[in-house]
Simulated scan of single mutants.
Amino acid sequence: MKHKHKWIGIGAGVLGFFLGMLSLALRGLFNQIQIEQVLYTSFGLIAIVGVISLALAVYYLRKGREAYVIYQTVEEEEANEKAYVSAYRFLDYGTVASNILMIAMLCCLVIVTSPVIENVYLFIFSLVLMFFSFAVANYCVRTIFLIRQYKLSIFSTPKEVLSFLNSYDEGEKQAEMENAYLTLFRLNQIILPALYILLFVLSTILQETQLVALLILIVIHLYINIDQLRKTKRYFK
């Protein structure tokens, strides 16, 4: 295990060195790229993600409803169990796709508000995507109520989500908690530190410190760690 950690450290150092060299090599190339091109390209990619996630969300939520109807009507035990598992699995897939759709919609709205973007069709597309994202979110909430028999709002509060988690059975609750802990660990120890390196590379390439992005990253990183004190205070009374 010690050797494994040693090689991870060496690999991270080598990767950082090559990223630094790459940023210096690409500095001249990025100086020739216009911000307008970057924004239009980003909008196009995000729009594609939004449309795909919209289709997937509707598809999986509908499949979840169909599987739940089968679970309610079929009496044969094996088919009943299979439909039950499928309903919950499709619901989770649809929920993830709905969340990605919401993210894509917000990104599109942020991009079209840039003074560089002067295309009214992109603005209209963003509004249409916003309408569909809220419609899908409402459909998702109603599907959750149908399958899990728990009523959530589109803009659920942390307290509501915690109460929703407590409605799970013990096995699923344990799986959710393990996944949440691993996600938090990866964010704190891997993803966010990697973003610091990425900001360093971008600052080197663009010859300008990405101050706003750095401040946002620091706030998120600090929040994740300081928020752990609430758990400590609540559990170790």
Rank of each mutant, 00 (worst) to 15 (best):
I205S: 04
V116Y: 08
Y150H: 13
F30M: 10
G94M: 05
A57Q: 02
V110R: 06
K173T: 00
Y150K: 04
V49Y: 09
S98L: 04
Q32W: 01
A137N: 02
S153Q: 04
V69T: 13
R62W: 15
Y93F: 13
I103Q: 08
F132Q: 09
V136T: 06
A12F: 06
K233G: 03
S163R: 10
F236T: 02
S23D: 10
E77G: 03
V161I: 02
G9Y: 06
Q207K: 12
Y68C: 02
E160G: 01
L127I: 15
F134V: 06
K6I: 09
A12R: 06
M1P: 09
S98N: 12
F132P: 04
Y196V: 14
I70D: 10
M177E: 12
P158D: 04
F185V: 12
Q72L: 15
F132H: 10
A97C: 11
V110A: 15
L45R: 12
F18Y: 13
A213S: 06
L129H: 00
N99G: 13
Q210F: 08
F125E: 04
M21I: 15
K237V: 06
A12Y: 02
E76G: 03
F145H: 07
G50H: 00
Q189R: 04
L91W: 08
L195V: 07
A104N: 04
L109S: 10
V51H: 12
L127W: 03
M105I: 00
F18P: 10
I46P: 14
I100F: 06
Y121Q: 14
L15I: 07
L61Y: 09
C107L: 15
E75Y: 00
I70E: 15
L162T: 01
L54F: 07
P158G: 02
K4D: 10
T73E: 14
E118R: 15
L192R: 03
L229E: 03
A137Q: 13
L129W: 01
F17R: 05
I224C: 05
S53Y: 12
N99M: 11
K231H: 02
Y60A: 11
Y59L: 11
G11P: 00
I197Q: 03
T209Y: 06
C140N: 08
F131I: 14
Q228P: 05
I8E: 11
S163C: 12
Y223H: 11
T183I: 12
S86W: 01
L182G: 00
I154E: 12
F134W: 03
L127V: 03
